[in-house]
Design a protein around this nucleic acid. Structure first.
Lengths: 338, 338
DNA sequence: ACTCTAATTGTTATCGATAACATAGTGAGT
DNA sequence: ACTCACTATGTTATCGATAACAATTAGAGT
């Protein structure tokens, strides 16, 4: 029950071949006698040999790891992105090394440092805002760096994302087209969730563009915001500005919390008040009534990121200009009658 | 922009000390002159040195990785467990290497094999059912193996979990106490999600114990099951057995989907029909009406697993009997008036 | 039989950090 | 001044696989 001490050396000795032959047997693309390979693989199974990638990692200077930092694992949007990224990378034999920053730039910096020690072949971060030192670490890591879920003004290297602000323009336009003018936005503290902050900025800009009052901003607290926070925020909104006609939640859980609070108070949605969110969480389509939302295609972000990494990996060092920015399309999913 | 080629050797040369001195500077607990350590760390920062754990991993035969396999990352319960596990391990400088089995035992086997190649210091799996070869790999890995979210009849080594079947007893008892007798269960294909299958078994056993009809079983399809599947299953149930008085969903998303379908059909919950789920997802407390559910303390599972791993790590090889089974308490959260 | 090419297997050095042991330096106590 | 204990640093060998190159073997062509 000791840590498996069977090495290639042991296999080689057992079979009377050199260690190199054993090594080759495990590399699918190396040319060798198929009969010998079979013998090696059989012996490996018999002796309970487990390939030791720590040794291979050191020698080959590549780990087949991709480091991924997300603000929270408990967020269906990020989980979708990581899932899609991970699935695609797994097909190429690569694995994801995940870190949660907890919506915190200082924690992200620590994570970046820790993850880089593991010598990943690429690093994927969420958003375009980082600590100065974090940014420096990323830029100097010597591996592909991909910022996602955002369109940073000053990208480090590669970007796979979209404009969070633009999505809010679309929602405001949607509500204005329906004749709503008193529209509120429920979001979190802006310094934590920068994508949320961008959405709030987009909301304000869109409202101004329509000549509408931008005073209906509710701060629901610190990210991560859940349904409960949405419900509380809605309660506050209904107390202070009961004539509000529409509410945009920074994400669907907040929007659903708001919806549930309306229901508890006997308000009819969308007759009395309209509600929209962000993220196309499953609940937006299942709740009764359904929620208007933005579908940012989280799985698409993950898959495109994976494809980019795989292309960069197979590219020669020099001929890898690539489009640096991959924009992901998003779409508005209107509730049946919001 | 090449992969950072600064090594301890470079630092040592730059400072005129030996590599060993540099190495010691990075190990907090090694005794050395604090002034020298400061100089080394400063030089590291200046030269952009990044510690290379691939080398340390090989030499020390330990990676500070914990491999964790969950059925789906897009499941708030598992995400909570992984989050808590990861947070606690991070405090001890360890990291989680995550794999998704997709509720599939064959895929799990492949994952076990891949993850063990990385030489994790421990491996955590979800549930107690594995392929024969997967089980053999786990048993022979020579590292702590922890099965979670279940109480396997034949544990490999350690277990941190609870009886899924027992939770369903509690729900059935709850409904029976309220005078319900025509109770349905909505679950998925039993061979994929074994915890879901255990809950179904628990449901059937409890119903039989109360002398009730166990025919109201709806198969909502292949795991992972979402809210949509719950809504569809509810529709089917209402068509085929409209006199059903209570419905138990194998997890909260199914239960909420069922609730939403009732609302679409104008049924009053819980007046016309009661609904319960499992998992204490946030939605069970926020939906209107709220859902009766079971709180299996997913974060607790993660934390206890982490603590166990840390205890095993610091224990000597021999004196580590430990309680092999850690049972996690769960509780029933009754809706206001279900 | 003889050369030549291609397929197969072997040898050696190495990736970068660290355990284990060795050595130099420092100061207290007598 | 001398020993002892202790701190700080250096030396050497090593973890296990693999790149690069070397050597051997087998079969084809003449």
């Amino acid at each position: 029950m000791q840590r498996s001490s069977v090495t290639m050396k042991d296999l080689a000795a057992a079979l009377g071949v050199s260690v190199m032959t054993v090594s080759r047997a495990f590399k699918a693309d190396s040319s060798m006698n198929e009969a010998t390979r079979k013998k090696v693989l059989q012996a490996a199974r018999d002796l309970g040999y487990v390939f030791d990638s720590t040794a291979a990692n050191l020698r080959t200077q590549s780990t087949n790891f991709v480091a991924v930092i997300i603000p929270s694992i408990n967020n269906a949007n990020f989980a979708d992105t990581v899932g899609a990224l991970s699935d695609r990378l797994a097909e190429a034999g690569m694995q994801v090394l995940l870190g949660n920053s907890g919506y915190n730039i200082a924690d992200e910096e620590v994570l970046i440092e820790q993850l880089l020690r593991r010598k990943p072949d690429a690093i994927v971060v969420t958003g375009g805002r980082h600590s100065d030192y974090g940014r420096k670490l990323l830029a100097g890591a010597g591996i592909p760096v991909i910022e996602t879920w955002d369109l940073p003004a000053d990208p480090i290297q590669y970007v796979v994302g979209f404009s969070n602000a633009a999505t809010m323009h679309a929602l405001v336009d949607h509500f204005v087209a329906k004749g709503k003018t008193r529209i509120a936005f429920v979001g979190g503290d802006s310094n934590a969730d920068t994508r949320g902050a961008d959405r709030r900025k987009g909301f304000i800009a869109a409202m101004k563009q329509h000549g509408l009052d931008t005073a209906r901003l509710i701060n629901a607290g610190q990210a991560p915001l859940g349904m409960q926070a949405g419900a509380r925020a809605m309660a506050e909104l209904l107390e202070t500005m009961p004539d509000t006609q529409a509410v945009i939640g920074v994400a669907d859980p907040i929007a659903f919390g708001a919806l549930s609070e309306c229901q508890r108070r006997g308000l009819q949605v969308p007759r009395d008040i309209s509600i929209a969110g962000f993220g196309a969480y499953e609940i937006s389509a299942v709740s009764h009534p359904t929620l208007t939302t933005i579908d940012p295609q989280p799985r698409r972000i993950g898959r495109e990121t994976a494809e980019l990494i795989l292309r960069l990996r197979s590219a020669d060092a020099d001929n890898a200009p690539e489009p640096k920015i991959t924009q992901i399309d998003w779409s508005i999913c209107a509730a049946q009658s919001s």
